[in-house]
Write a protein that binds this DNA or RNA. Structure first.
Length: 152
DNA sequence: GCCAACGTTGGC
DNA sequence: GCCAACGTTGGC
């Protein structure tokens, strides 16, 4: 089983949106980055756990935990011209973009802030805290996962 | 709102 | 295949 960190802007889609979704489950769609696409398509599996990270907001940080409930499958929002993330180059017969399904597990007792994560030498290798990193989904090692939870 | 960093696009 | 221009991300 793998661990992940997944970013979203809470003004657009935060952990409360997921908590209130039907079945507390939703699609993680709209990813239009090849590196992240590859991870969703090849490496994310049903049963994996992921941190829900709030980005581009007043206090960026980890807000909760979710579970992957469906492994990577074609992101159908890419096929719909009405969708914000429509991509005419993604062919339903040869999809360019993938998504996964996620289910709310719980909120953390408090948001573990980016500033705090940056102070942790144990997390120095986490892409999130590395300069210039732009991955919206990244792998988290078991050691990093446990360390982050110990901060809660 | 600024801007550094980085990915993508497209002309050549 | 190079690389300048452009667009996006996301912290601050």
């Amino acid at each position: 089983m793998n661990y992940w960190l997944m970013k979203s802007e809470p003004d657009v889609y935060g952990i409360e949106h997921l908590r209130k979704a039907a079945g507390k489950t939703d699609t993680w769609d709209g990813v239009r980055n090849y590196q992240v696409r590859n991870m969703m398509r090849d490496d994310m599996n049903k049963g994996d756990l992921a941190f829900f990270y709030h980005s581009n907001c007043t206090t960026p940080g980890i807000a909760g935990i979710m579970k992957i409930t469906r492994k990577g499958y074609p992101d159908y929002t890419a096929f719909d011209p009405e969708e914000k993330y429509f991509d005419p180059k993604s062919d339903p017969d040869n999809p360019r973009w993938y998504m996964v399904d996620v289910r709310f597990v719980r909120k953390l007792k408090r948001v573990i802030t980016l500033a705090e994560l940056k102070e942790q030498s144990a997390l120095a290798e986490l892409p999130l805290v590395r300069r210039g990193n732009r991955l919206s989904i990244m792998p988290v090692s078991k050691q990093q996962w446990d360390h982050i939870l110990s901060l809660e």
